[in-house]
Design a protein around this nucleic acid. Structure first.
Lengths: 150, 150
DNA sequence: GAATTGAACACTATATATTGTATTATATCA
DNA sequence: TGATATAATACAATATATAGTGTTCAATTC
């Protein structure tokens, strides 16, 4: 832990405050007396997604953005909104205390958010994600949408 | 420092290894016994650049990439190479033990890297950065280039 | 501009982290 | 595949960090 002022390797902790997911320490360089702040954070473990075919792959934020972009083509949903949704979901997953999530859980989370934002995109996303095979599936999800509104 | 497994707030350090600019700790949750790794890192203090007109502004990686892109238009220099150069310079600055650098120092560092990569881009960048006012300046820098090659 | 919030600072008793040495497992690279 | 580097594990003696309480300063917000 090189002192940012003089490069000396030795420093001592003069204050230490734990918070929910960090420890903030105030350090003082042994040599030059400079004070600086450090943060102790938990190592990022990549979040793994269990897909429907039981293969496992790391959670890919970009991929999710991509899928959402496709569901919102020609719909009044900004890229910013999409980024926010993905950001929120990533945060939820990060707090879920588990390093593995099924793609199902992610899909449902997306649907939950999307319903509030744009109903057409919601139906589109559901049709891809839930593998709609007939028109009835559309009818069903739309009537569910209407029910929830009442 | 919430345990990533059970969310418990209490953990103890079972190992601790300092390196040049990090401290890696191995922690064990008091409650569930889960083990996880943490890193203590020095807080990022934004690097300030002192410009020629003596104004100070934070170092902007993107801006530097931008300037390099302009100097390499139609030259066989990939964006990746540019990103690497900027990355290297940012790293050098970060290790320079000072929180303020003159834009001059940055400019010279860019030139140093650029000379190895593409001579045309090198001359172009120099002409902008060193405010060439006449053709002689070009002649001069080119002859310097040739000298260094020998 | 008053109120609120977060960080820096100080001091102290006590509990906890550190670091050397060493073995094993895992991942990366030629 | 064999070599090399990196991380995890264990153990023990000693030095060092922690957390409680409280004050001040600066930045942000109403």
């Amino acid at each position: 832990m090189k002192c940012p002022e003089c490069g000396c390797e030795e420093s001592k902790v003069i204050d230490s405050r734990p918070t929910e997911n960090k420890v903030r320490r105030r350090r003082e360089c042994i040599q030059c007396g400079a004070r600086f702040t450090t943060y102790e954070i938990i190592e990022e473990v990549p979040l793994m997604v269990i897909k429907k075919d039981h293969t496992i792959e790391p959670f890919d934020r970009e991929k999710l953005v991509d899928r959402l972009c496709r569901a919102t083509v020609k719909r009044p949903v900004s890229l910013e909104t999409i980024e926010n949704i993905v950001e929120e979901i990533a945060a939820e997953l990060k707090n879920s205390l588990t390093r593995e999530v099924t793609s199902d859980k992610i899909g449902e989370a997306v649907l939950r958010k999307l319903r509030e934002v744009d109903e057409v995109a919601y139906v589109r996303f559901a049709s891809v994600y839930r593998d709609f095979n007939d028109v009835d599936s559309f009818v069903k999800i739309i009537s569910e949408l209407k029910d929830k509104k009442v």
